[in-house]
Design a protein around this nucleic acid. Sequence first.
DNA 1: TATTGTTATACTCTATAACTATA
DNA 2: TATAGTTATAGAGTATAACAATA
Lengths: 167, 167
Amino acid sequence: MSEQEPGPVFGRDPSTRVAFLLSQVGSMAASQFADRLADLGLQPSDIGILRLILLNPGMSQQDLASKLGVVPSRVVSLVDGLESKGLVERRRSTRDRRNQELHLTEYGGQIMGRMRDIGSAHERHVVQALSEDERLVLGELLAKVAASHGLAADVHPGYRAAPPSSP
Amino acid sequence: MSEQEPGPVFGRDPSTRVAFLLSQVGSMAASQFADRLADLGLQPSDIGILRLILLNPGMSQQDLASKLGVVPSRVVSLVDGLESKGLVERRRSTRDRRNQELHLTEYGGQIMGRMRDIGSAHERHVVQALSEDERLVLGELLAKVAASHGLAADVHPGYRAAPPSSP
DNA sequence: TATTGTTATACTCTATAACTATA
DNA sequence: TATAGTTATAGAGTATAACAATA
């Protein structure tokens, strides 16, 4: 977001500017989620990492770097931040002492528990204007678009150098 | 994004993670649009500004700053970039010599003409997996969500300090 | 020699605040 | 005194490349 999404230059009805609307609404959803996390002193990027470690305990920093699509040196500073907050623990592997095995601390696990509530409150707020049926349809259409572009089900593409924005 | 959207920690079916999907797909759409613009040496933020100037010829930098929601000093550097590329012209106002009146150059107008094609190619690519009916429905649902959160029809929220990402 | 993680460094982006010129 | 724009400066974030430890 950094961010900047231009705006549709063309069509005026929603069906001819779906790409812009996706970017615009997606950016809004992302920044509202960031606001909720700020109360915990966390950033959206932190949650993505905590979640991957929760699902893959003991994963190495290289694993994490390749899943996120970022450079290893960036993982160092991201994990540094989480470790200094007491959420993540590095354990030097005994089988290959070059590797760090990443684990959530007990506190990190608690935070992920609280994330459930934060996430569902966020979800409800974002789609508050839609009926239950509409939410279902929107979710299915978005999942279809996501799949057609090869997006992994649980990794956000925003870890890579994010341009300010776009339609 | 910069960029980072965590990933859904909760539900597994699309209708319980619409917020994450919005952020994920929106980020993807934004970065694909940025890729298309890079061929022209432009960034998504540039297009949003060119479009506002096209729609409001002679607007001041203060006007622009308040529409975009950014600080005036940032407008200076954004306009500097567009002026150095020959897309925008600053004309010192004769009625109040403190103001700069912003105008597209002829070349700037041509670029906005080419944007029409770039934008519609981008649109087609993003929603390629959907039928015509599905595109219509998706556009309407997104417009409804956007309106419910007070998003201006043609200004991208990404100009403000964009966090890496979020659901 | 190759790999994991780390550090050092530089670059970009953005905001804050001080400044100029106009009013 | 107040406003539009600019400049100077500092901070955050990220990438590249060099490095240490281990294999």
